[in-house]
């Protein structure tokens, strides 16, 4: 069993987390922008451009937020 307070596991957990956090927000942003473009407003390509920019910001914010939660050792 993984020891709950083992710093190796905690550190690996954090490391694995941040990569996907960044990418997932980017995918969501691009996807929402694309949906706006094709189905809602017919504004190609500006919805996707704006969505990707917002997605990058949201991803970095997520990563920053989970980094703030790091245990201080």
């Amino acid at each position: 069993m993984p020891p709950s307070q083992d710093p190796l596991y905690a550190g690996l957990g954090q490391a694995v987390r941040i990569g996907t956090d960044l990418v997932a927000a980017l995918i969501v942003g691009g996807g929402l922008g694309w949906v706006c473009d094709t189905y809602l407003f017919d504004s190609t390509p500006w919805g996707m451009v704006g969505g990707l920019v917002l997605g990058v910001v949201a991803g970095i914010r997520n990563a920053y937020r989970s980094a703030q939660r790091w245990p201080k050792t």
């Binding site: 995918i27 969501v28 917002l54 910001v57 949201a58």
Partner: peptide, 14 residues
């Protein structure tokens, strides 16, 4: 608000 909506939606996906 849009940024936070995205970061919320990204949670289950990630």
């Amino acid at each position: 608000i849009p940024i936070e909506i995205m970061s919320q939606v990204a949670r289950p996906i990630s």
